[in-house]
């Protein structure tokens, strides 16, 4: 089964009277276990593409299938469920909740799926340990370094064991050494069989992937392997 299939996808935003064609006919298939990097200049539509693939939004037209489910015109509850079960996000700005400690942040997705309190704790601690944060379970984001924060975010993205892991400029806020560490983590996850989609404008980051897709003006302009 393919992790994601897009057929002739368009996405139009309306800002006042103006129509902005963020995506104009994108077709793309991401097989399970793939490691894809989506690149392109800002305003090219790569973020929009990631939002669609990440089930944060639905296309204006075209067919979109994520993990075998047609979500082309899904309602918000179905999308939320898909995000909860099939997808993990890692953001550039970490997007952790400052009031919660490491375990609290990591277990957040499990709050919205029917998991008992005990199992939730256990899985969150296991996920935090798997990214090397076993010693900092009670710390809050403000007490962690940038690299540690991003690892908390990765643990959170993985805690529900999703099929696809998205990284939206995951190294953008990190120094090059920590960035490399995070990318290594992504690569080893992919070697373990997980589908990974990175959105980045940094060619060095994109080079980590097996396949690079370049977007220009809402269309795929080039597709190649590094």
């Amino acid at each position: 089964m393919d992790a994601a299939v897009l057929e002739d996808i368009t996405k139009v935003y309306r800002v006042g009277d103006q129509e902005i064609h963020a995506l104009a006919g994108v077709s793309l298939t991401i097989p399970e276990g793939d490691f894809v990097a989506i690149t392109g200049p800002s305003g090219s539509g790569k973020s929009t593409l990631m939002h669609l693939l990440g089930c944060l939004d639905t296309p204006t037209a075209g067919r979109m299938e994520i993990c075998g489910k047609d979500l082309s015109s899904a309602n918000s509850d179905t999308l939320a469920r898909a995000r909860n079960r099939e997808i993990g996000f890692v953001f550039q700005a970490f997007n952790l909740l400052p009031k919660l400690d490491v375990v609290g942040n990591v277990e957040l997705p499990l709050l919205y799926s029917n998991v008992s309190t005990r199992e939730r704790r256990e899985r969150a601690i296991a996920a935090a340990q798997s990214v090397g944060l076993g010693e900092r379970l009670k710390n809050r984001p403000a007490q962690l370094s940038g690299g540690q924060c991003q690892r908390v975010a990765i643990a959170r993205a993985l805690v529900n064991n999703p099929r696809i892991l998205f990284g939206d400029e995951p190294t953008g806020n990190l120094d090059s050494q920590t960035g490399r560490m995070v990318l290594d983590l992504f690569r080893s996850l992919n070697e373990g069989g997980r589908t990974i989609v990175l959105v980045t404008h940094d060619p060095k980051v994109a080079a980590t992937a097996r396949r690079i897709i370049e977007i220009h003006d809402g269309r795929i302009s080039r597709e190649y392997s590094p």
């Binding site: 990440g54 939320a80 909860n84 997007n95 997705p109 919205y112 959170r156």
Partner: peptide, 16 residues
Amino acid sequence: IREIGIRMAVGARQRD
């Protein structure tokens, strides 16, 4: 708002 966005991104439904 951002917290609500994060909760939604990890799977919170409108009802949650």
